[in-house]
């Protein structure tokens, strides 16, 4: 589904190479996890895949179902099925959460040549999905992420994901800043979306999220590269011994 080959990325403004040849393939129906020390380039990878400005791809490719992602605008990538749950969800004063969700859902449907969702159908769907994430009516009415707690912001990301039903879900440290209960809610939200046609790339620091969202494959990223790939046991190894051993072994 998602194929990343030899991806090299530098900052647009500075001569700073961040990704130094990332190779990664996520198959439909699978959950891949990426772990790695701070600053290794995990968020950068997620931003480059979703089309944020400020980065320059100097080599390599990234495709979704064979389509070149790097040539597309962010909204085209979204319509093609890419979704990024942000490490730091953005606050947008003055834009209602509900309006935002509906605009996004309908924009994607339109881009795919589908009919817009009627107001009633949309409302029904959003209410049901919000309920399972324990997002109340008040949070739906408020401006996007404004005044939301850390946990509320992350649940709001998952709600957007549930509404948009993307093919390729990228979650960037969705567990950070969450207490155990909130993490379970988020994990349930993600698990509810697991499906044969959908791929997941879960970026996390900690094993604990992976107790709830069971990965098929675990990658370790360091200094802009995937340095080791293995099964779920790799996450346990990191949990127990930290990154030092793995990094030493690779070098």
């Amino acid at each position: 589904m998602l194929e990343i080959k030899n991806l090299h990325v530098k900052l647009e403004e500075e001569e700073k190479q961040i990704l130094k040849g990332v190779d990664l393939t996520v198959e439909a129906g699978k959950v891949h996890a990426i772990m790695g020390p701070n600053g290794s380039g995990k968020s950068t990878l997620s931003y480059v895949l979703s089309g944020r400005d400020g980065y320059e791809v100097t080599e390599g490719s990234a495709t979704l179902e064979g389509e070149d992602l790097l040539e597309m605008e962010p909204e085209e990538r979204a319509a093609a099925g890419v979704f990024l749950a942000f490490q730091y969800p953005v606050e947008i004063p003055g834009v209602g959460n509900m309006t935002f969700l509906r605009t996004a859902v309908n924009a994607q449907r339109k881009a795919r040549g589908e009919d817009e969702l009627s107001a009633a159908d949309f409302l029904k769907e959003v209410r049901a999905k919000a309920k399972s994430l324990k997002i109340d009516a008040d949070m739906l009415k408020r401006p996007v992420n404004v005044g939301f707690s850390g946990g509320e912001k992350k649940r709001n990301e998952i709600l957007q994901m549930a509404m948009l039903e993307p093919k390729m879900c990228i979650l960037d440290e969705t567990d950070s800043g969450l207490d155990v209960d909130a993490m379970k809610l988020v994990a349930e939200g993600v698990n509810a979306l697991r499906d044969e046609g959908r791929g997941f790339l879960v970026i996390t620091h900690y094993q604990r999220l992976l107790d709830h969202i069971k990965p098929d494959v675990v990658h370790i990223m360091a200094d802009g590269r995937i340095v080791k790939t293995g099964g779920p046991e790799l996450a346990l190894e990191v949990e127990n011994n930290g990154y030092a051993d793995i990094l030493a072994e690779v070098n």
Partner: peptide, 9 residues
Amino acid sequence: FYLRSRGVS
């Protein structure tokens, strides 16, 4: 970018 990443033009 946040809005665009959700598919809004």
